[in-house]
Amino acid sequence: MPTPELLESLPGPEELRRRSIVLAALDAVMTTDSPKYVYRPGWRADESLASMDNGAGDEYSIIFGPNGTYVRGFDHESEMNTFDQADAALWPGLTDHLPAVFRSYIDDFTLDGVPTMTVCLWWAVGDPSWNCSDFAYPDGDVYADGASWMFGALTDWTLEDFLDHATYYGCEMSPALAHHLMASLPLTEEHMAALNPTADAARALAKVEALRYPVQ
């Protein structure tokens, strides 16, 4: 899934936010530290942040703010990773058409002060769809940016895909509970116990509620 295909596959900003919260909620129940998927509703005064970090150097960040939604991804093995280059510039053309209201975000995600990005998308307020800059891929390889795998948990929103995603946590989730989560239906302590019998159900429910996921 090269970036142009990702533009067609990603849901709109609010659905993207909802799915991000679902992924973060599942992660919050199943892990105690170093979560892979995170959602920070109060990242800044008027901005929320959804992120993924696989612990191996690959990550994405999605900022939901008053000017729109900004998506940045980083595949550390991509040929478009320019971190080790002397001038530390991003891949040529990657952010050429990025609107001014989003440009400050480039410096928010750095490694040793150097911006890290191989995927850059945005949906500004008033836009009808996702956008990206027009640039040349290395050797014409449209899959070089890492978008083909990085956002799969957000784009492949089917029961089969969600159940497969749950196996990452060693969770054998029932189809009924998977449907419940995928639809953002309210969760209870009983749901927490079904997802992770070793977790403190009340504490897990509080963590989920802090993500702005509905509970009861």
Rank of each mutant, 00 (worst) to 15 (best):
G65I: 01
A204D: 04
R72F: 06
E160M: 04
D112M: 09
E209I: 06
R40W: 11
P115K: 02
T116D: 02
T95Y: 03
G65C: 13
L94D: 02
T118M: 00
S184K: 08
L90I: 02
D87Y: 02
G65A: 14
E209Q: 13
W130H: 09
K36S: 14
E59H: 09
D58S: 12
T82W: 03
H76V: 00
K207S: 13
P175M: 07
L111A: 14
F151P: 06
E172M: 13
D33E: 14
D58T: 01
L205S: 07
P175W: 03
W157F: 12
D58Y: 03
A204R: 05
A199C: 13
H76F: 03
A153C: 10
M30K: 13
P175S: 09
N196K: 11
P99S: 04
F162G: 00
D87I: 04
M30R: 15
P175G: 08
W149M: 08
S61P: 05
Y168V: 10
K207C: 11
D46S: 13
G140E: 11
A45H: 15
V29S: 06
Y168Q: 14
W91T: 01
S20I: 02
H97I: 05
R19V: 09
A147H: 02
W91E: 04
W123G: 05
L187C: 09
L187D: 06
T82F: 06
A153W: 00
T82D: 00
M1H: 15
T198D: 15
M80A: 04
T31C: 08
D156R: 14
V208M: 12
L10Q: 11
P4C: 06
H180M: 08
F64T: 01
P138T: 07
W43I: 03
P11M: 12
A178H: 01
N67Q: 14
D200S: 13
